[in-house]
């Protein structure tokens, strides 16, 4: 059993992904597809609700990394909410709270979007290239 499900809800201008089960290298492509469908529909205000997620490996965090640049270029954001201590620990170990807003409750993330408090657009560092 390696169950993972992504539910998609539209809350005003925000798309919420409800994750359930086990997110690893086998199931990460399902999350990738969900993000792609939102972005193809030009939805850039995204919240990922982790309430029913039991497990995450770096493959799941990799999906968030894959889309954050594109989403912020379009003046959106990926905000995260409702993580169990176990799931939060994985994000924390890798320093993800530096890059992502993580909220205890989904409504706080939605409120941020509602108040139009957007993350500054992502800017590439000047590497002289």
């Amino acid at each position: 059993m390696n169950d993972f499900k992504v539910g998609i809800r539209h809350m005003d201008t925000v798309t919420v992904f409800d994750l359930k089960g086990y997110l690893d290298a086998h199931t990460a492509p399902d999350l990738e597809q969900a993000f792609l469908s939102a972005i193809d529909g030009r939805k850039y205000n995204l919240v990922v609700n982790f309430r029913d997620l039991a497990y995450i490996s770096s493959a799941g965090l990799g999906v968030l990394m894959q889309f954050i640049e594109d989403v912020r270029k379009n003046e959106g954001d990926i905000k995260l909410s409702n993580m169990s201590p176990r799931v939060f620990n994985v994000f924390d170990l890798l320093g993800f709270p530096m890059l992502y807003e993580i909220y205890a409750e989904e409504r706080d993330a939605l409120e941020k979007f509602r108040n139009n408090v957007t993350h500054p657009p992502y800017q590439k560092p000047d590497t002289g290239e």
Binding site: S58, L61, G62, V63, M65, Q66, I68, E69, L94, G95, M98, L99, Y122, K124, P125
Partner: peptide
């Protein structure tokens, strides 16, 4: 984080 990419974690 300044150069987001997938993998390597």
């Amino acid at each position: 984080f300044q150069r987001p990419r997938r993998g390597g974690l």
